[in-house]
Computed example of a mutant assay.
Amino acid sequence: MEVKTGKTTTEQSWTVGEVALLTRLSIRTLHHYDDIGLLRPSVRTEAGYRLYTTADLARLWRVLSYRELGFPLAEIAHVLDAQPGGEVQALRTQVALLQEKQRRTQSTLDTALAYLHAAERGEGILNMTNAELKDSFDSFDPAKHEAEARQRWGDSDAYKQSAVRTSRYTRADWEEVRAELNAIYARYLALMGAGTPADSAEAKAVAADHCAHISARYYDASPEMMRGLAEMWVADDRFTHNIDRAGEGLAAYSSAAVLAWASELEE
């Protein structure tokens, strides 16, 4: 369809139904994108019909590309409407998340292959090599430092709340918890790699999600408690070493981000 968009120019445009056919999206989805401001048709006819322009379709292509990368719709709108550089930063973060997801998928595949090879040899898990067994259980260690944790915080409400919650966790639950934390680490690392200060709004947003992760999975974490954790990440070499396994300098950066976030809330 062609419509007049000015006094002397004519531009190709498409109805919502035509765009639905072109993209294989439902009309309902396109209407939803319009309602939330993610993709609004730029042209309105004299009869009141809204039409999509070439620029609108270009934006839709980007929307679908970001959706394929796993961005939530609200974040896609923020990225597309961001200031110059915002889209690059968002993509860096998403690349880091996808790389972490790829690493976890490869680790799961390697474990499955180890089990398969042991089964094909007719040996079963009990006859797997120590290296294979270690790889299988490397990401599942919920009891690590349990005795020390009980000694240091056993009388606290937070420890008791965490003990009750985690006592019900299966191995699959622990894998999910670990995946969530790795995703948070990947976001910190993406910001580090981009040279974003730890006290920036972006880093503090990750710190807020870090707090939400701990509150959802372990115990209700206040800013004051998060401050204590952040200080421990850099004061205790064991925590620093463990966190920095995900990326050199991560412990210091995440600690600084959480401290900045906590200070902002405590002001």
Rank of each mutant, 00 (worst) to 15 (best):
A252I: 02
A212F: 06
T15S: 11
L21S: 14
N130G: 10
R178S: 09
A235P: 02
R40T: 14
S167F: 05
T8F: 14
S156M: 11
S65D: 13
R103P: 00
N130C: 04
A147P: 00
Q12A: 13
K101F: 08
S215E: 04
T10C: 06
A183V: 07
E46H: 04
E224R: 13
D135L: 11
R227G: 13
D138C: 04
T170E: 01
T54W: 10
L25M: 04
R165L: 14
E180M: 09
A262M: 07
E123R: 15
F71W: 05
R50N: 02
F140G: 12
V3C: 05
R165Q: 11
V79Q: 01
S255H: 06
E18L: 07
R238Y: 07
L189S: 03
A96C: 10
G6F: 15
E68Q: 15
I243M: 10
A163Q: 04
D35S: 14
M128I: 09
S167A: 15
R121H: 09
E146W: 07
A208F: 07
K204S: 04
A149L: 03
G195D: 05
V16W: 00
G17K: 01
A179G: 02
A221P: 04
R168C: 15
Q83E: 08
I125P: 10
E267K: 15
G48L: 03
A216T: 07
H31G: 11
S255M: 08
L30R: 00
A235G: 09
V88W: 14
E132T: 15
D157C: 10
F137N: 03
D34T: 00
W14R: 05
T129Y: 13
L126D: 10
L73F: 02
A131T: 09
E120P: 02
P41R: 01
D220I: 15
L98H: 03
D34E: 14
D141N: 06
R171D: 11
K160A: 06
T129S: 15
A212V: 03
E132D: 14
A186Q: 06
D157F: 03
R227M: 14
D34P: 01
Y188R: 03
S13I: 00
R217N: 08
G37C: 10
D236N: 14
R40H: 13
S13V: 08
T45N: 04
G70Q: 08
